[in-house]
């Protein structure tokens, strides 16, 4: 019990206390300690990564072994990862090598396209918000449209009222006002709440009230 529960909790408490104090001490001992902690965290991460690779190969390997649906694609995943790794280790990572070509023309291409799918998804998300259930969602959408228009040259040209009454702001002006005033207020209020939440959860962890991350049972 001591080794499985008390000592880990003590480690959490001690680390939390030390790093909390470290923030207030500018002495170089404190700086060295912080740097040392960062180095340790990186080394732990290095070894923990081994488990993630084991997990990946195991999951796809199991799918192949059990002939789960679409197991052939798991073969592709494993082969691609092994190929990429082999080329990277043996040939090197310079421009023009297979490793970099695979990176640029496969990984970057696919990731870039996934990112660009967002352009389509945003419009369908906006459409769904438009058919919204509540006035609040409509407020969200209206604010979004105004800011969108305000950030492109189109917004200036559409602001027809500006020619009649120049003192009235254009779309860009309204958009900037929205960004700087109500948006700012909302963000500040949220940040205050989030800050409270973060500090509370951190304190609960350090004091040992919240223990589920350890998996020791509630």
């Amino acid at each position: 019990m001591l080794w499985k529960k008390q000592i880990p909790l003590a480690i959490t408490f001690i680390m939390g206390l030390l790093l909390g104090i470290q923030y207030f001490v500018p002495h170089r001992i404190s700086e060295n300690f912080f740097q040392g902690y960062l180095d340790w965290a990186i080394v732990i991460g290095i070894f923990a990564a081994i488990l993630s690779y084991i997990s990946f190969y195991r999951v796809h390997g199991m799918r192949i072994k059990k002939k789960a649906p679409a197991w052939q694609y798991s073969v592709v995943a494993i082969v691609m990862s092994v190929t990429m790794a082999l080329f990277g280790f043996i040939q090197g990572r310079e421009e023009g090598m297979v490793f970099m070509n695979m990176y640029s023309y496969i990984l970057v291409a696919i990731e870039g396209t996934m990112f660009s799918l967002l352009a389509f998804y945003i419009s369908s998300a906006a459409y769904r918000a438009f058919r919204a259930r509540s006035t609040q969602a409509t407020a969200l959408l209206l604010a979004a449209i105004i800011v969108m228009l305000g950030r492109v040259p189109l917004g200036e040209s559409i602001s027809f009222w500006h020619n009649i009454w120049p003192s009235l702001p254009t779309f860009t002006g309204i958009a900037n006002w929205i960004l700087n005033v109500p948006n700012m207020a909302a963000k500040r209020g949220m940040q205050l709440g989030i800050g409270l939440g973060i500090m509370m959860l951190s304190l609960k962890i350090i004091l040992g009230i919240e223990r589920s991350y350890m998996g020791s049972g509630d």
């Binding site: 499985k4 480690i11 939390g16 030390l18 951190s202 350090i206 020791s216």
Partner: peptide, 20 residues
């Protein structure tokens, strides 16, 4: 658990004053 507590404790300790 030892390594987890090391990382989680450190992260929590860092978070409180910085968040404040």
């Amino acid at each position: 658990r030892y390594a987890i507590c090391f990382s989680v404790g450190a992260g929590s300790g860092m978070a409180i004053p910085r968040s404040m």
